[in-house]
Design a protein around this nucleic acid. Structure first.
Lengths: 242, 242
DNA sequence: GAGATTGTTTAGCCTATACTAATCCTATAA
DNA sequence: TTATAGGATTAGTATAGGCTAAACAATCTC
């Protein structure tokens, strides 16, 4: 009577592993230790599951040498990440969740929703390209926007940058940054980078300046912005680009 | 490392049993057979789980005599039903699901969403009192609107009735009824009830008439409507009731 | 190159939840 | 009052996915 008919869903556990490997390593191999730390499981459990994932064709795995995603595993990871980021967008923008609350809920929901739901939600939200943290949302066809951003603490002093995304790992940081308007889209000038302790001093568009400790600075991902030196008048276009 | 901290969620299985018992029996006892049929599980599995549910204090259970919900079990069932019906409302009204698709998705989601999510969703939907099938949505405080409706095939010939809800069990019936506008809120006149084969003939507000076979007629729940004979002008009120 | 350190795997176990087959009750029908 | 049919339970088993403790491999240091 155990009837797996039409179950497009692998188990929640399997999905967690695949996603974790994707987040940890992308196309590279993730070690047992890394995975066990991230999922808060014992190493033994991870070893065990990696064997199973290999059987399923989701990872390449050789003992003592970590695991990397196969093509299929990677596709699966992107499906989960797409679900996750769309759900986060919905929770934040429509249901009024705060940045801190959102992650845990999305973490549970991402294993329960169908592809049907996901695509209808995407439609409902207007097919956003990025979630509220600024992370790109994988597309339904399994492609993912290339991300050119780098950590704020790797910027150069004097550089003009725009916040492209915020590491969603730590809710209290998220809330802090959100409160000060340090959210995706904001433009900042990097005033000083103290390599000794990692403190980064920045100035926002209103001229307010902040000193961010290393953990905060490492949570902010930015892209370089080229200050236009010569501005030519923009030719009027006949159509209105969105 | 198995850490059930702060888990307001009982397992999905437990929730399914509790909900099934509620739907089958309300305050009465449900038999092992009934439960096993509804959940599509073997009788042995059900017996086993009923023992466990009793340990948890969710049901009263004596072997060979079925199980009924305890107060706590009932409260839990109502929480799940509330989640289910709110989710169904959202899927139908906001995401554009059809009546047939909605049930399965809600069935999965109801086990994944938190109370936080549920209440925010209720707010988002404007705190509806009934779901799109016309079923009353249990309130956050655990109370449930009394339902005065009866099955269409138990109406009297000549009676004027209003559809109050539609049994959501059978998707294809739902779709059929929906296509013909036989949805909650519609007013009908019962023309004839053939007790021999259970066929009910009705007439809708536009004068169109339908013959419904027994299964369809038993899926439509209606309330009697009293045709106003004397209409008095309504006194104006000084406050605007919502 | 020999330890020492740290990460990985193996072995053995546990729980939740399902299953089948066999047995046991209960209620109904004669 | 008893036979019997059908529902309920028990016994034994399976699978997924965790765990700990102990053994093992790889790497880093001297």
């Amino acid at each position: 009577m155990n009837d797996p008919i039409a179950s497009q869903h692998t188990s929640s556990s399997v999905e967690d592993y695949v996603k974790a490997i994707w987040e940890l390593a992308g196309a590279n191999a993730a070690s047992t230790k890394e995975i066990s730390k991230r999922l808060r499981l014992s190493g033994a459990s991870v070893t065990n599951m990696l064997g199973r994932l290999k059987e399923m064709g989701l990872v390449n795995y050789e003992r003592y040498h970590g695991a990397s995603l196969t093509e299929e595993g990677c596709a699966q990871a992107l499906r989960i990440v797409r679900r996750h980021r769309l759900i986060e967008s919905f929770l934040l923008e429509q249901l009024g969740y705060s940045w801190g609350e959102v992650h845990e809920e999305a973490e549970r929901l991402e294993h329960a929703v169908s592809d049907e739901f996901t695509e209808r939600l995407a439609e409902f939200l207007g097919h956003p390209a990025r979630d509220p943290h600024g992370d790109p949302i994988p597309r339904a066809d399994g492609t993912l926007e290339r991300d050119e951003s780098f950590r704020l603490d790797e910027a150069a002093a004097g550089q003009l940058v725009r916040i492209s995304r915020v590491n969603p790992e730590n809710p209290s940081m998220l809330n802090y940054l959100g409160k000060h308007g340090l959210v995706p889209g904001q433009t900042l000038t990097v005033n000083e980078i103290r390599t000794v302790d990692g403190v980064v001093t920045i100035e926002d568009e209103d001229g307010k300046s902040y000193s961010l400790g290393r953990p905060l600075a490492a949570s902010l991902f930015v892209q370089g912005v080229v200050e236009p030196t010569n501005t030519y008048p923009v030719e009027p276009t006949t159509t209105y680009p969105s």
